[in-house]
Amino acid sequence: MPVYNLKVNGQPLSVEADEDTPLLWVLRDQFDLVGTKFGCGIGQCGACTVHADGVATRSCLLKVSVATEMDIVTIEGLSKDASHPVQQAWKEIDVPQCGYCQAGQIMSAAAFLKQNPNPNREEIRDAMSGNICRCASYNRIEKAVEKAASNIS
């Protein structure tokens, strides 16, 4: 089985895996980075969102063999102490219900705000519509992204 060298949260990590293994399962099962969640496995729900070279990426569709070239950041690496403005906003607004989708929501929001630090409401709603929240905490996610944007700027 081939060995892949990855860069995750700034750390060099290597893993033995089949080339088609999604990054999601390498993160969760091999690297113990379980903050990245499995929801659908087909890139539809966004629970597994990580940053690959700063871009919000569905790790269930990103093969480990492709990820070797990338700078991967997971929820565990977004900040050392929950101090990222998006995490802070999530806490301030008290977004989570069951909480399972929220790491993916936060990663999507963080990548989006980096690209568009001053979004309007419609842009937020469109940007976040790739992430499903089954508890439907959408009103609060929307507010938290607005809050994070105002905290950043």
Partner: peptide, 10 residues
């Protein structure tokens, strides 16, 4: 939510 810190840090 008492678990909010754990949730937002994964």
């Amino acid at each position: 939510n008492v678990d909010v810190d754990n949730i937002i840090t994964g």
